[in-house]
Design a binder for these strands. Structure first.
Length: 416
DNA sequence: CGTTGTTTATTGTTGA
DNA sequence: TCAACAATAAACAACG
């Protein structure tokens, strides 16, 4: 049973609100909710979703962040207006504003500002995927059998605003990844090909290391031979201090730095939002974000995942992200929203979610109260009924997840 | 000279 | 806790 220490919850909540307000002041905050910014048409040509929604678990598999990220990429988000599609750009979005299907009466309705994560337009949001994944995506997006490094750079900067404004050292990392990772193969340039450098492509032998563009390989993917030593933890195994100067010529010769400056503060400073993504991924499955997984068994798995991830979270659910279902025109499409804060108190209140739009909660007041009292909060997912029945023919089209929905019954999620 | 590609070192993260 | 991996930084050579 996950227990969230409330003082930390309070602190987290305050931090998130400050971040939100800061973003608003700086003009980079809640992105105007128009399709140009919220939709992921930019990845329209990017086929990434597999028909198998389940990723393998364990080492060598995409992280939860990457999985969620992948889902985001794989789902068009024209319906990123969270509730009712009524807000004009710039307007605050509030959860629970749909008067037709209100939240459970025992849930206190609270306005919850929404903050979007838009990788293409927000320079502060670093995509939670590895460089190998970025390379793979760029390669797939190019639709060419081989691409140049500059093409990869161009695609990344065009599609991830973070890298457009980041220190150029990331390019070095990309090049290094290309060189070191044997999943990528260098293709010599022909004489009549003008560009500098060679081409790169995904080695067919290792193509299965990429699941929908997300690199899932780890242990067996590195060029450990061929003189490459980069991934050997020489610094730890030999502790460097114990290594003679002859054994560490670069250190002695160049007097390299001994401390590492983190120039990518985003991940370092926003771990909470990232971790919340994990929960979002689970909730997404529970509530229909990824309807392809909503069979009973998978639902249970999703719930277990949810419980598991929440147990792993030291912080409360400071922010929840999910794909909102849009049942318009019997099409399910999804847009991502980050929701600010909520958690459950330990009062035994039951929150029954009646639609995908009415999602978990609302207990900011309880959060505050608990914060004062220092009591822990417990969250228990009790019962769930399966959300929309999907046409088994739902499928993938140009990398987008669409699902026909003949009769979308209201999903219910009871939270104790 | 800028780009490309390789290599080494260091530090942070993650999973067993 | 530790090993493996990812990310970052830097140096350097080759090339156009």
């Amino acid at each position: 049973m996950p227990v969230f220490p409330m003082p930390r919850a309070k602190r987290f909540k305050v931090d998130r609100l400050e971040m939100y307000l800061e973003d608003q002041v700086q003009g980079s905050g809640p992105t105007p909710l128009d399709d140009t910014l919220t939709s992921l048409h930019w990845l329209q040509d990017f086929s990434i979703l597999s028909s198998d929604p389940e990723w393998p678990s364990g080492p060598g598999c995409p992280s939860s962040q990457e999985q969620l990220f992948l889902r985001r990429l794989g789902n068009d988000s024209p319906s990123s207006l969270a509730v009712g599609d009524t807000a004009a750009p710039g307007m605050a979005q509030y959860l629970g504003s749909d008067s037709t299907v209100g939240p459970h009466p025992r849930i206190q309705e609270q306005p919850i500002p929404l903050v979007e994560v838009v990788y293409k337009t927000d320079p502060k949001v670093k995509p939670p995927c590895s460089h190998a994944s970025l390379i793979c995506m760029a390669m797939q997006a190019s639709k060419q059998p081989k691409v140049t490094v500059s093409t990869i750079f161009k695609w990344i900067t065009e599609n991830f605003c973070y890298y457009k404004h980041a220190e150029p050292s990331w390019k070095n990392s990309i090049r290094q990844t290309l060189s070191r990772n044997k999943c990528f193969r260098k293709v010599p340039k022909q004489k009549d090909e003008p560009s500098k450098g060679g081409f790169w492509q995904i080695d067919s032998e290792y193509a299965d290391m990429f699941v929908n563009g997300i690199f899932k390989g780890r242990t067996r993917t590195l060029r450990r031979n061929n003189g490459f030593q980069g991934y050997q933890d020489t610094a730890r195994t030999s502790a460097n201090e114990d290594v003679s100067p002859e054994q560490k010529p670069l250190l002695s010769k160049n007097n390299r730095r001994t401390t590492r400056s983190t120039k990518t503060p985003l991940l370092a400073t926003k771990p909470d939002s990232m971790r919340v993504d994990i929960l979002a991924a689970a909730l997404e499955e529970v509530l229909g974000g990824d309807c392809s997984t909503l069979e009973d068994s998978d639902l249970n798995a999703a719930l277990r995942s949810l419980e598991c991830e929440m147990e792993g979270m030291q912080e409360p659910i400071g922010e929840l992200g999910r794909w909102w279902g849009d049942v318009m025109n019997q099409q399910l499409s999804y847009g991502y929203m980050d929701l600010c804060v909520t958690t459950m108190d330990g009062t035994g209140n039951v929150a029954e979610l009646q639609t995908p739009q009415h999602y978990l909660y609302q207990h900011q007041d309880h959060l505050n109260e608990s914060s004062v009292s220092g009591e822990g909060a417990e969250v228990k997912v009790d019962t769930v009924t399966v959300p929309p029945t999907l046409d088994p023919g739902f499928g993938l089209s140009e990398g987008f997840f669409t699902a026909t929905c003949d009769h979308p019954p209201p999903p219910t999620l009871t939270v104790l």
